[in-house]
Each structure stands twice: as structure tokens, then as C-alpha cells.
């Protein structure tokens, strides 16, 4: 499994698109704070970081199909999986290792994006009294729990990439599963069940209590485990071409 992970990292680190993604995320983070510095009402570091919690916390979920595309989806597209399977690689280990590599890449992208965001906010924006050590700790704990949510989105994307194989279809299915259940529950008057879904957790995380953070973590972990097991079961029986 470690060899497979090493090989996948070798592949991604030799792919120019990965560096474009990193650069793109950094530029975007930089641009947000630069723009905020031009708006007088939200030109403090505190405002900038609150914007992350209130508006941007769920956005990284949308990037997860890109990470899956970098690691495993292209294996289906380029028919490279047969080279791995025919060598006797255990399918469950292969599936899990690809999810692990996508998570590692997510962490790297996250560090670059968040690092640039926090760094540029400190450069461009003023530090007001609201920006305290307690606020900083709270901010990072909420972002930290959100990261579990982003990691939970990876197995969902991996599952649909494996089932549907075609890029456009798997991305569509991923977004459908992420966004539609909430609407469907509303339609059948079961909105109270939304608290067990992935996406609503992020809005709850923005202002929720420590208890809420714990509940959200639990939802994220259960979602991740469910999709990892489901994906691995399907992958074991899948015809590889």
C-alpha cells in the first residue's frame, strides 16, 4: 500500500496541473484579502477570517473531484488500472491507498491555500482588538473539523469516479449527492434529518458549539467510512478494462 501511495505521489508531483492547482488556490486566497483591503468596512484580519467561517468553509468540498481526478479517476480514463491489478495488487488496498493519496494532496492544497490566505490577511489587513488568541484558536479548531469533512468528501468522489468512470458524469453525480439530499428531505418534510448530512455540517460549524463540532466530526467520519466500504466492495468486483 505504501509503495502504491509513493508511486501515486510520484505521478502527481510530475503533473503540471497539480502545480497550477496549488498556484491557483494561492492566487485566489491572496486576491480575496487584497480585495478586502480595498473595502473599508471589512478590512481587518478578524473580518477576513470570519468570512472564511461564514462563507468559504464548505467551498473546498467542491474541489475534491479534482483531487480524485488527479489520483484515481484518470486511471479509469487512461486504462492504466489494468497494469496495477494484473500485477496482483490487492484491490481493497489499492482503493484505500488512492483515497489516502488524495487526502494527502488535499492537505497540501489546504496548507498552501490556508497559509496564503492567513499570511496575506496579515500583510494586507489591519489587526483589530477582535483578533485575539482565543479567536485564532477557535478559528483553527473549526477549520480543522471542516478538514475532516473535506476528507469525508474524498471517498464520495472516489466512489462515483469508480462507478461512473466518465469525468463529467462522476463530477455531476458527486455534486448531486452533496447538494440534493438536503432539498429532497425538505420536499418530503424530513428537514430535521438534514443534520446527519455532510453539507449542512459546514454552516453549523461556522457558529456552533464544541458539542456541535463533535457531532459534525462524527457525521464526517461515518460518511467517510460508509463510502470507503461501499467503494471498496464495488471495486473488488469491478471489471477492469
Amino acid at each position: 500500500m505504501l509503495k502504491q501511495m509513493r508511486a501515486d505521489l510520484y505521478k502527481v508531483f510530475h503533473r503540471p496541473f497539480f502545480y497550477l492547482l496549488l498556484a491557483g488556490m494561492a492566487v485566489l486566497a491572496f486576491f480575496v484579502n487584497f480585495s478586502l483591503s480595498k473595502v473599508s468596512s471589512t478590512n481587518s484580519v478578524y473580518d477576513s477570517w470570519m468570512i472564511v467561517l461564514l462563507y468559504f468553509l464548505s467551498w473546498p468540498v467542491l474541489l475534491m473531484p479534482i483531487l480524485i481526478d488527479l489520483v484515481s479517476a484518470e486511471d479509469y480514463k487512461e486504462h492504466t488500472l489494468k497494469n496495477t491489478i494484473s500485477y496482483g495488487m490487492n484491490r481493497t488496498k489499492l482503493y484505500c491507498s488512492q483515497i489516502a493519496v488524495s487526502t494527502i494532496l488535499g492537505v497540501l492544497v489546504g496548507i498552501v491555500a490556508l497559509g496564503t490566505y492567513c499570511g496575506s490577511s496579515l500583510i494586507f489587513l489591519k489587526i483589530d482588538p477582535s483578533f485575539t488568541t482565543a479567536f485564532t484558536a477557535d478559528f483553527f479548531s473549526r477549520v480543522g473539523v471542516s478538514c475532516i469533512g473535506y476528507a469525508a468528501a474524498i471517498p464520495i468522489a472516489a466512489f462515483f469516479a469508480m462507478i461512473l468512470q466518465k469525468n463529467s458524469l462522476f463530477v455531476f453525480a458527486f455534486y448531486a449527492v452533496i447538494f440534493l439530499p438536503q432539498l429532497l428531505l425538505k420536499l418530503v418534510h424530513l428537514s430535521n434529518l438534514s443534520k446527519y448530512l455532510l453539507m449542512p455540517q459546514f454552516s453549523m460549524l461556522a457558529a456552533g458549539t464544541n458539542r456541535q463540532m463533535l457531532d459534525s466530526s462524527l457525521v464526517f467520519i461515518i460518511t467517510a467510512i460508509f463510502f470507503i466500504i461501499l467503494g471498496a466492495v464495488f471495486f473488488r468486483k469491478k471489471d477492469i478494462c
Partner: peptide, 18 residues
């Protein structure tokens, strides 16, 4: 099936590592 953006050497190196 190979990765189109990798060279022949890099493609084989990927499988050597794996």
C-alpha cells in the same frame, strides 16, 4: 494504458516504484 503527460521513462518509473 499509460499516463499521457508522463514520459516513457516516468511511466515505467511509476510502475517500478509501485
Amino acid at each position: 494504458g499509460f499516463y499521457p503527460y508522463l514520459s516513457a521513462c516516468q511511466n515505467l518509473e511509476y510502475y517500478r516504484i509501485q
